[in-house]
Structure formats: structure tokens, C-alpha cells
Design a protein around this nucleic acid. Sequence first.
DNA 1: GTCTATATTCGGATAGAC
DNA 2: GTCTATCCGAATATAGAC
Lengths: 188, 188
Amino acid sequence: MTTQDRLVESTQDLLWERGYTGTSPRAIQQRAGVGQGSMYHHFEGKPGLAAAALRRSAEQLRAVAEADLAAPGTAYERVAGYLLRERDVLRGCRIGRMAQDPEVVADARLRAPVEETFEWLRGRIAEVIAEGRERGELRPGADPGDLAAAVVAVVQGGYVLARAADGTEPFERAVRGALALLAAQRTD
Amino acid sequence: MTTQDRLVESTQDLLWERGYTGTSPRAIQQRAGVGQGSMYHHFEGKPGLAAAALRRSAEQLRAVAEADLAAPGTAYERVAGYLLRERDVLRGCRIGRMAQDPEVVADARLRAPVEETFEWLRGRIAEVIAEGRERGELRPGADPGDLAAAVVAVVQGGYVLARAADGTEPFERAVRGALALLAAQRTD
DNA sequence: GTCTATATTCGGATAGAC
DNA sequence: GTCTATCCGAATATAGAC
């Protein structure tokens, strides 16, 4: 693995664990086993490195989500697959976590991958729901975009509740609740 | 207002804006218009002051939520009142934000008010839903605790989506989606 | 490309005068 | 109770040798 790659991966991990404000260049260099000079040679300081790390995390998240959403099955089953995917609940979402940090939100290069990821995810889930409607699997009713936003919010909010409780139960409850409500939308 | 109160209020604001890791004693003192000595005289450093601020924010949040949930009306209307309350969406939740900070989660005195607030909120909403069931307003089905967790998660996740988008729309969508799903649980 | 020095400011806190 | 002085290490970065 190249020095750049080691720096990017270490940054991904640290941003996940400690957030942007809580992650220092020092800590990144140590985790990557790289000196200060190397980091500043390859990247434009902490923001540049973080931007690269976030772009990479965003790509990876997208690929994982697409695998669930493009799976065979009914719309309900595909959304359920997304909601029930195995997650490291107490670690939370690498991308969603960034939205809480004002330094990230204030920097266009850092916020862009976060914004794009959620925009894509909501759009993709809305598509799945709209398809389910067209196929007659789901009742017509609420805007698919609204339902998709609710689904994504349940996951992101579930992480918040789980960390607050220092346990996974609230996350699992929220997902079960959301699935029960979605299940009631299926045609008989 | 006493010096203590000014310190606590300034800390509440800064924790909301910048999070725990991003809030320095210096910044607190300046916002409160108080010297270093005063702060360390009245509180046990940053953690002690933050604990006091979080307890106060938790009380306030609880009071506001209770007002909506104890309002007259059907269970659906009361939950809708909670979901549709006016919020400063882009600022997010003072309590939920803390759950993302590893320094908060690691310190029992800081995590306690966060945990208790969400536990209370989920329980209170579950009560409202259970009452609706008993009164025949809502169909029997999913566990009220699961539905309550989903409701709270939609709000917390909605904040995440809104900040990611730098706009309130995703929050409003998520709430509309959740309300549409809940509305379908009403008896005819 | 990578390393070691060095610089500056901030974070978090203590000491002791008033 | 409040203020100023002071301390030490960390955060973030630059300079320049190798």
C-alpha cells in the first residue's frame, strides 16, 4: 500500500472514531506510520486529507447500500434488506457523523461528499419505493421521496439513540418500528 | 443573573454550536464575560461545567416535549404535534448532538443526561401510542416502544440529513413520511 | 519523498494576589 | 469570588536537511 493510501485509510478511521475536530494531523501520521513531512507533501493539510478520506468513505458506503437496494425481491424486501444489514451500530455512520461537525459543514469540500451521499441514498430508496408502487406491491399514498427520507432518517437517528444508550437496542427498535409501518403499506 | 448561570448558559450554547470537543473553557469564559478564576471557582473544570449545562438542557427539552405529548387530542395528533413542532432544524438537537462525541459517551456524568432524556422520550411516546391503542384510535400491531423509537429516530436522523444538505427540506420530508406511515395506523 | 527541527497559537488548568 | 500570571503539552503548520 502506498503512503498516500495509508494516510487516507488512517484518516477514514480517525474521522469515524473521533470526528473531524477531534482528529489531529499528529494522530493520523502516527496511525499511518508516516512522518509529518510526508503528509504535507502529499496532501494540502488536514482539510485536503480529510476531503480525500471522505470521498473514499462515501464511495464505499454507496457501494454497500447499492448491493442491498439492487438485490432481487419486492420493494419492501429490498428496503428491509437495507435496514437490516449488519452494522457496527455503536460506531455509527462514517458519513452521517460528519454532518454534526460545524467545521465540516462550513467547508464546501468537506460537506460535498456528505451531501451527495445522502442525496443519492434518498433518491435511490425513493426509486425502489416508486417501483414497488408501479408493480402494485405497495399502496399509493405518500410521496416516495418522503418515505425514503424517513427510512434514511431512522437509520441515522437510530445510531444517535444507540450511542446515547451505549447499546444497540434503541437502533434495533427503531428499525423494527419502521419496518412494521412499511409492512402495513404492502398490498394484500 | 448570577455568574454561575451565565457560565451554564454560555456552555449550553457553545455545546450546541460546537460540540463538547469543540468547546474550550476559554470560549466559555469569553462568552459569559467571566475570567478564568471564576469558572474554576464555581465548577470542576470543563467536564463539571458541561455536566451542569447538559442537565439543564435535558430538563428544558423534556419540558418542551411534554407540552406537546400531554396536549389534548388523539394519540396521532399528539405525536404529530411533537413531530411538527417548530424547530431550529439546522442547529439540531442540543442533546442528540452530544451522543456523537466520544468524549461525552466515555464520561458517565456527561452521558447520563443524554441517555436519560432519550429513554424518557421514547417511553413517553410509547405511552401515548399505547393509550391510542386502548382507546381504539390505533390498530394493534407493532410494539409501541418500537414505534416510539422510530419516531424519535426520525427526528434525530432528520437533523443529520438537514445539516448534510445545509437545508431543512430533508428533515421536513422525513417527518412527512413518518406521519404518513403513522396516519395509516389509525382506525377508520 | 521523507525526516527532523522549529514556530505559533490554543487547550486546559493551577497559583496566588486582591 | 474574581483577577492576572504562569505552566505544559497539543494542534497545525513551515523550513530546510538528506
